[in-house]
């Protein structure tokens, strides 16, 4: 537990260095409040997803269905809104869809014992299919009227940031706290660190895992809500590949895919690092393919540093 802060500090420094690099090159845009606002707003969807994914990865799992859940939640939210005209009902629908998918993933991984990679690969395809079926293979348009469409709006902000970004910050704090100050959080860490030992100690391993997937599903549902809010559309083909961006954010943030290690705050900074590279790159006119190479190198560097840290810990 003691090394965690160092790890977050390390990721934070990396982000500040990358940010400083762009600030030196583009001081007029990068050193403004509105740029910070833009950066956070653009990171919100991936960032919210990363809060949930951190729990799954720390528990020793992985969830490849995140992108599909986001798409399904946006479709279900849009359909609910069109039917009820109630923004609140749409918000609830997104969250419930996410939790339901998470529970499904959790139950399947812990009961099938087939490994979370394969199980969520299957649910990734299946959930994407359900989203397309529900939306009749089209995008569901909503008209975009009402507060449902102001979560990450450019114009409707509340103390600098839009409400969706504030939600991200709130849940970030809540879930970072919960990892340390609730028994569920500690059980997630224990299961990810050594599942057999946790079982021996009487920790309900299956329930903890299902809980972690359900928490993750809730946040993927919220990310779907952000997608719906931003585009005013329930789009069954949206968020394709976002599961990998979310996983990348969590890994850059210091999580180990072997489980037991990871930080919600680190994952948020990981999301910011990726958004900073793409934003800065675009502003400097760096081609997209170069940005992608750079993001890839950042991920490899994060993993290499992590390995090196573990190796050093083991030798002394």
């Amino acid at each position: 537990m003691k090394k965690k802060p160092n790890q977050i500090v390390g990721v934070l420094i990396a982000w500040l260095l990358i940010y400083a690099f762009f600030a030196v090159n583009k001081p007029q845009t990068f050193l403004s409040i509105s740029n910070v606002e833009l950066l956070l707003r653009q990171s919100t969807m991936i960032g919210i997803g990363a809060v949930g994914m951190t729990y799954v990865i720390v528990a020793g799992g992985i969830d490849l269905s995140a992108g599909s859940v986001i798409a399904l939640a946006s479709v279900v939210g849009a359909l609910t809104f069109n039917r009820t005209h109630s923004p609140l009902a749409a918000v609830v629908a997104c969250a419930v869809t996410g939790v339901f998918c998470g529970l499904l993933n959790g139950v399947l991984t812990s009961k099938l014992k087939a490994g979370p990679f394969i199980v969520t690969l299957g649910s990734m395809l299946a959930i994407r299919g359900i989203a397309k079926g529900l939306a009749d293979e089209k995008t569901v348009s909503t008209g975009g009227e009402g507060w449902l469409f102001e979560f990450i709006s450019k114009t409707k902000s509340w103390f600098v940031f839009p409400i969706g970004t504030w939600m991200w910050i709130f849940f970030l704090g809540l879930m970072a706290w919960a990892m340390i100050y609730t028994n569920f959080g500690r059980n997630v860490v224990a299961v990810g660190s050594n599942e057999s030992a946790a079982k021996l100690c009487g920790i309900p391993v299956d329930r903890v895992k299902i809980g972690a997937y359900a928490v993750a599903g809730f946040f993927f549902g919220l990310a779907g809500l952000m997608s719906l809010s931003r585009t005013s559309l329930g789009d069954p083909t949206s968020a394709t590949g976002d599961e990998l961006r979310i996983i990348a954010a969590v890994v850059i943030g210091g999580a180990s895919l072997a489980g037991g290690e990871g930080s919600v705050i680190g994952a948020a900074i990981g999301a910011l690092i990726m958004a900073t590279i793409s934003m800065g790159g675009t502003q400097m006119g760096v081609a997209n393919w170069k940005q992608e190479i750079f993001t890839g190198i950042i991920i490899l560097a994060a993993v290499a540093i992590d390995r090196w840290r573990i190796a050093r810990r083991q030798t002394n």
Partner: peptide
């Protein structure tokens, strides 16, 4: 294997059950 959770603290291992 399952005796103890090596990455976690002494205190947490003691109180886990």
């Amino acid at each position: 294997l399952d005796g103890i959770t090596l990455p976690l603290s002494i205190a947490e291992n003691t109180t886990m059950p």
